Amino acid sequence: MTPALRTARYLTAAAGALTASAAYLGTVITWWAVLPCLYVAAVIAWCASCEYAVHRRTLTAHERARRAALLEELDTAGPCCRLYDLSGGYAHRDCARPPDGLAELYTACCAEAFVSRGARHDATCPTRTTRSNAA
């Protein structure tokens, strides 16, 4: 809850109380007493609507800042797939793919190990650590 929303709620309650008191004054005393109460109630209601607008603007600014920070965080990771590019970063946020499609190839010790997922290696491969295909 922003301070503007709290103020708007108080002003709305005050405008309602003034309207009720104007109705009471109109029935008990005279209709001339109604005019100042209704005028003040209208001014307070206008002030309340302005405070509600400030509240909405504050929430919108916070949401835009949050989205900008999220997009900045996602942009530092780089696009993971075509869906990420087409949606502007909104879809595929939790994609498990590496940002670079060839990243796994770059970390592989040889081409045969890349193709077989570490089960086989070339004769010229320096590591030759065989990995099970179960993993």
Results as ranks from 00 to 15, higher is better:
residue 111 A to E: 09
residue 84 Y to P: 00
residue 59 L to A: 03
residue 44 I to G: 09
residue 78 G to P: 07
residue 37 C to G: 06
residue 37 C to T: 06
residue 26 G to H: 13
residue 107 T to L: 06
residue 127 T to G: 01
residue 109 C to R: 08
residue 41 A to S: 14
residue 18 L to Q: 11
residue 123 A to T: 12
residue 56 R to W: 04
residue 102 L to Q: 05
residue 17 A to R: 06
residue 43 V to E: 07
residue 99 P to V: 14
residue 35 L to T: 11
residue 123 A to S: 12
residue 25 L to M: 15
residue 58 T to S: 09
residue 101 G to N: 11
residue 45 A to V: 00
residue 84 Y to K: 10
residue 122 D to I: 02
residue 24 Y to C: 11
residue 58 T to Q: 15
residue 58 T to G: 04
residue 119 A to D: 11
residue 41 A to Y: 07
residue 34 V to E: 02
residue 90 Y to I: 04
residue 98 P to K: 05
residue 132 S to F: 02
residue 35 L to P: 02
residue 117 R to M: 03
residue 104 E to K: 11
residue 54 V to E: 12
residue 101 G to V: 13
residue 90 Y to R: 11
residue 77 A to N: 05
residue 37 C to S: 07
residue 117 R to I: 02
residue 25 L to Y: 11
residue 118 G to H: 09
residue 53 A to P: 08
residue 49 S to E: 11
residue 66 R to C: 08
residue 94 D to E: 15
residue 34 V to N: 06
residue 52 Y to D: 01
residue 17 A to C: 13
residue 97 R to N: 10
residue 44 I to T: 13
residue 119 A to N: 11
residue 88 G to S: 10
residue 114 F to Q: 13
residue 129 T to P: 00
residue 30 T to V: 07
residue 72 E to S: 13
residue 28 V to W: 11
residue 120 R to A: 06
residue 82 R to K: 13
residue 4 A to T: 02
residue 30 T to P: 02
residue 81 C to V: 01
residue 116 S to C: 06
residue 96 A to M: 05
residue 11 L to P: 07
residue 91 A to V: 01
residue 122 D to S: 15
residue 83 L to E: 07
residue 101 G to I: 14
residue 89 G to T: 05
residue 33 A to E: 15
residue 100 D to Y: 09
residue 121 H to L: 04
residue 22 A to K: 12
residue 123 A to L: 15
residue 57 R to N: 06
residue 91 A to L: 04
residue 39 Y to S: 05
residue 129 T to I: 15
residue 12 T to M: 01
residue 81 C to H: 09
residue 44 I to K: 03
residue 74 L to N: 04
residue 33 A to G: 15
residue 127 T to F: 09
residue 112 E to I: 07
residue 107 T to K: 12
residue 68 A to W: 15
residue 71 L to F: 04
residue 62 H to G: 06
residue 68 A to G: 09
residue 93 R to G: 00
residue 84 Y to H: 14
residue 13 A to V: 01
residue 87 S to G: 08
residue 89 G to P: 10
residue 31 W to P: 01
residue 115 V to Y: 10
residue 106 Y to P: 00
residue 64 R to G: 08
residue 126 P to K: 04
residue 26 G to C: 06
residue 82 R to S: 10
residue 13 A to M: 03
residue 65 A to P: 04
residue 83 L to P: 00
residue 73 E to P: 05
residue 126 P to V: 12
residue 32 W to R: 13
residue 97 R to A: 14
residue 10 Y to A: 01
residue 128 R to L: 05
residue 80 C to E: 04
residue 10 Y to R: 10
residue 65 A to K: 14
residue 61 A to M: 03
residue 14 A to L: 13
residue 40 V to S: 14
residue 25 L to E: 15
residue 99 P to E: 10
residue 131 R to K: 14
residue 53 A to C: 11
residue 37 C to H: 06
residue 31 W to F: 08
